[in-house]
Simulated assay, not measured.
Amino acid sequence: MKIFITKTEIKSYLSSLKEQNKSIGFVPTMGALHQGHLSLIKKAQQKNDLVVVSVFVNPTQFDKKEDLINYPKTIENDTKLLKSVSCDVLFLPSVEEIYDNNVTSERFDFDGLEHQMEGEFREGHFDGVGTIVKTLFEIITPNKAYFGEKDFQQLQIIKKMVAKHRLDVKVKGCPIFREEDGLAMSSRNTRLTEAHRNAAPFIYETLKKVRKKFGTNNALELTEWVKNQFKKQPLLDIEYFMIADEKTLKPTKYQESDKKYRAFIAVFAGNIRLIDNISLHKD
């Protein structure tokens, strides 16, 4: 596995491969890698000649400074994991390398996708996401880029950014990778206390019940039902639950037959914030 820390070096290396018509798959990460990330890399390996993974903890997408400070940094373990799945290239830039001396976000218009759910609770978050992903796409110039559906809103926003800025990359969403007990894999899971970790699978269990009830109960009834379920679970504090149109991410009250819906949830387990979602279509 080749490791690059500067834009100039990685651009030079990848451009020589592109001249040989090699296709590049790209998996951007913030490190603290787990099996969910590795599943994205394996998907990328199936469809591309080589795979680039970036590890960069992006300061502009954190709305709370303490979250940035506390974000787990495990680069030695990350490197081992990447080698174990035969990753081709690791891009490991510093904040200075990415932002020079100007750590600020570009402003984006995502046609309203950014104002729903996470956008309502995390001010400026998606401008930070758009800034780093666009920057990385311009450095790596991949043919395809892979993102997990756990951050479904982020996935839709990146697709929107690519379309609006006419970037030459195909964005691929990949299924949520879960622990055996159903908890969506996340770098934050390692920070859960034992009690909160034991309680956390309740999130996915609730989402699966919502999926069964959807169609019989409308979105308003299900939202009320979910809030009542979480009142019985003292270790988990629900921040939001929403059933939304997959395309626009706008919340719905009543189901329409020509639209696809997804249930979204954010929950605090102590001071650790967990998000999850589920398609409400029984494909």
Rank of each mutant, 00 (worst) to 15 (best):
L274G: 08
A244V: 09
G215T: 06
K159W: 05
F91L: 00
L50N: 05
T206M: 12
H34Q: 07
L155T: 06
S105Y: 09
F26N: 08
T131N: 11
T60W: 09
Y254V: 13
F268R: 14
K282I: 11
K22M: 09
Q229V: 11
T29M: 07
V27F: 02
I3E: 10
H196N: 13
E179K: 15
L81S: 11
E97C: 09
L40T: 14
E76G: 14
G31W: 13
T252A: 15
A145C: 04
E123G: 11
A219Q: 05
W225I: 06
K164A: 15
T6G: 06
L17E: 09
D127L: 08
S279R: 13
T131H: 09
M1E: 01
D151S: 09
Q45W: 05
N58A: 12
A266K: 02
T193Y: 12
K213H: 12
E123S: 14
Y146A: 07
K208F: 02
M1R: 03
E138N: 15
G124P: 00
K22P: 00
L82M: 13
W225T: 05
F214L: 04
I5Y: 07
Y261E: 07
K213M: 13
K159F: 07
T104W: 00
N70T: 13
T29K: 05
E19G: 07
V89M: 12
L50Q: 03
F108Q: 07
G215K: 11
K170I: 03
A44E: 09
K43A: 02
L183N: 12
N189K: 08
V103G: 14
S16W: 00
G25Y: 04
F268Y: 12
S39M: 08
E221C: 07
E205S: 15
T223M: 00
L17V: 04
F202C: 05
L38T: 15
D109V: 10
T74S: 14
R107V: 11
M185L: 15
A200S: 14
R166W: 00
E224T: 13
L183Y: 10
S54T: 13
E194Y: 15
N228E: 12
A44F: 05
T223C: 01
V55F: 04
S54R: 10
R188G: 11
I3V: 10
V95R: 03
K247H: 10
T206N: 10
E221N: 14
L17Y: 04
K2R: 10
V210E: 03
L92M: 11
V85R: 01
Y240D: 04
M161E: 08
G128P: 01
